[in-house]
């Protein structure tokens, strides 16, 4: 204990590197998702142009997907709460906010799983069902990544890292979280509202 107390403090890090890197990574993640979405809407438009039915009437309901929408909105507030708290060196609030965000993430995962089961779709039944699965599966993959990023950040915060001046990890995790939430909001309109 006394030995480590005599050791020098770690050097200051460049404060924007992690955030800029996360910004580019978020951009790449968003483009993967939009790549899948583009194919989805394109094939749906082609099917409609031919007069074919994309989904059977009433199978994809707006209710559960709307709950995901609102849950993600709440999570965007809580993750910003964490950013604010860590910048103010208010660790208890930061832990609560990070924990709540992850809880909302788990709820979204649960709701998404429910939707995939509730529709009764199968991967190989039709092009529409297949693309519905791939699009939502890609979203779930990014959601898991975002939750892992948050978990890692929370762990580091609990180990004593981050200070009002050196706290890039938390806003970076928040930036990726907002990106994933935005992916869903766009999907909600493009897939669930305009079926």
């Amino acid at each position: 204990m006394t030995a480590t107390a005599r050791l020098p403090s770690p050097e200051l890090r460049r404060p924007r590197t992690v955030l800029v890197g996360t910004m580019f990574a978020s951009a790449a993640a968003a483009m993967v998702y939009f790549g899948v979405l583009a194919l989805y809407v394109s094939r749906r438009a082609e099917a409609r142009a031919l007069g074919a039915e994309w989904f059977p009437e009433g199978v994809v309901e707006l209710g559960p997907s709307g709950w995901i929408f609102w849950t993600l909105i709440m999570s965007s507030f809580t993750v910003q709460w964490a950013v604010q708290a860590i910048q103010n060196e208010d660790r208890p609030n930061a832990y609560v906010a990070l924990g709540l965000t992850m809880l909302f993430g788990a709820a979204v995962f649960n709701q998404m799983w429910f939707i995939l089961n509730d529709t009764g779709f199968s991967l190989d039944a039709s092009e529409a069902q297949f693309l519905f699965f791939v699009l939502n599966g890609t979203f779930i993959a990014f959601l898991i990544l975002a939750m892992a990023f948050l978990f890692l950040t929370a762990l580091r915060a609990m180990f004593g890292q981050y200070s009002p001046r050196q706290n890039d990890g938390v806003p970076a995790a928040a930036m990726f979280w907002h990106t994933v939430a935005t992916m869903y909001w766009i999907t909600w309109i493009a897939v669930y509202v305009t079926k």
């Binding site: 951009a27 483009m31 583009a38 394109s42 438009a45």
Partner: peptide
């Protein structure tokens, strides 16, 4: 749709980068 969505998505993502 593919071309339109990809161009619009690239534009939206680039604008997000510009604001950050």
């Amino acid at each position: 749709h593919i071309g339109y969505t990809m161009l619009m998505a690239s534009g939206v993502v680039a604008s997000a980068i510009s604001f950050v």
